[in-house]
């Protein structure tokens, strides 16, 4: 559904060039939900804007929905839907009208557009807001309206740029259900970006991790977690003088990393910790070590991210400092 090779984009600004995307290869199969995960400024939006014909790539090529991006951007546009990170409705317009007008520009007949729009309003819990002026919607309502805009013409491929930002947990869970339904009921392909690890984990069939404009990892959520970090086994000793033996035994587990000690808590990373835990507990018991607590922590994508990029997803700013975005379309969202 998407095949990109060496896709790159350099922004030229007065303060110098920004290599926002540096040669991305990606393949997305039909009917997949693929998550594009990366910290602020990694190049997610830039990649999406290239794939949706809004931004000309500096280098590289891509076919999107079977159409060559450079040769036939109009053909790509007819086949995709796009929900931008920074919104898509005019504050001065009314919600329902924006959705219908958007569908009309895709050539959807008016009656079909209205029916589909109202159906989406129901599914996205926007009932009763059809005639509302967009500027009077709450942030989360307006975000869901953006999503309705992007889906109203039933595209076979949908790009969602941080669709759940600003949604409450319930609305987010509801959107997940809806995105899964796009895949399961219609066979649509969904390419979405997110900062939320649990979201990528829960929703995506496959994840691409991007950092500094390059893809640094790729796989199913399970694969990524396994490949990079393994599980954390956290053991809390009852007696401080057991710590040394605790470290020795847990550190000797097959494939274990170096255990870390924090007070009476010993933590060690092992691949597939689940399968080792029973044996470990028996060994400790045989050695007469008493435990106050045992915990097996499955790796989160945050752990993956930390390992891959050296920083946590949550802490935002790109290392090369804030870049002037006032003259860009992303400025509004910044």
């Amino acid at each position: 559904m998407i095949h990109a090779r060496g896709l790159a984009r350099t922004y030229h600004s007065r303060r110098g060039d920004v290599d926002a995307v540096r040669g991305v290869d990606l393949d997305v199969a039909a009917g997949e939900i693929v998550g594009f995960l990366g910290p602020n400024g990694a190049g997610k939006t830039t990649t999406l804007r290239m794939l949706t014909t809004l931004l000309a790539p500096t280098r590289g090529e891509a076919t999107v929905a079977g159409i060559d991006l450079r040769r036939n951007p109009g053909g790509v546009r007819r086949r995709i839907g796009y929900v931008a990170q920074s919104g898509s409705t005019s504050g001065a317009a009314r919600a329902g009208e924006e959705v219908i007008d958007h569908a009309l520009l895709y050539g959807v007949p008016r009656s079909e557009a209205a029916a589909r729009g109202r159906e989406l309003f129901g599914q996205l819990e926007l009932d009763g807001l059809w005639d509302r002026k967009c500027s009077t919607l709450s942030g989360g309502q307006r975000r869901r309206l953006d999503i309705a805009m992007g889906l109203v013409h039933i595209p076979q491929l949908v790009f969602l740029d941080e669709p759940t930002t600003g949604l409450d947990p319930q609305a987010r869970a509801n959107l997940w259900v809806h995105v899964r339904a796009l895949r399961d009921d219609r066979g649509s392909t969904v390419f979405l970006t997110t900062h939320y690890l649990e979201e990528a984990d829960a929703l995506c069939d496959r994840i691409l991790v991007i950092d500094h404009g390059s893809i640094v990892a790729e796989g199913t959520p399970e694969e990524l977690k396994q490949r990079v970090s393994g599980d954390a086994v956290v053991l809390t000793a009852t007696r401080p003088n057991d710590i040394a033996r605790l470290v020795a035994i847990s550190g000797a587990l097959p494939g274990a990393g170096a255990p870390t000690v924090d007070g009476t808590v010993v933590e060690v990373r092992v691949p597939a910790g689940r399968t080792l835990l029973a044996g470990l507990l028996r060994a400790l018991d045989a050695d007469g070590i008493e435990l106050a607590g045992v915990e097996l922590r499955r790796p989160t994508l945050d752990d993956v991210f930390l390992t891959l990029t050296g920083r946590s997803l949550r802490d935002g700013e790109p290392p090369d400092g804030p870049v002037d975005r006032t003259a860009t379309s992303d400025g509004a969202a910044a």
Binding site: M1, A29, A30, G31, G66, G74, G75, R78, R79, Y106, G107, E112, A115, R116, E119, Q123, I154, P155, Q156, H178, A181, L182, D184, D185, R186, G187, S188, T189
Partner: peptide
């Protein structure tokens, strides 16, 4: 038109059986 019809079987080539967008129309 509704999103609640049962799961759709994919075509053998993996392409989604979604209404193919009309070819370029005179839309100006």
């Amino acid at each position: 038109m509704t999103a609640t019809t049962g799961p759709t079987v994919l075509e053998p080539d993996g392409r989604a059986p979604i209404r193919d967008p009309e070819p370029a129309r005179g839309t100006f």
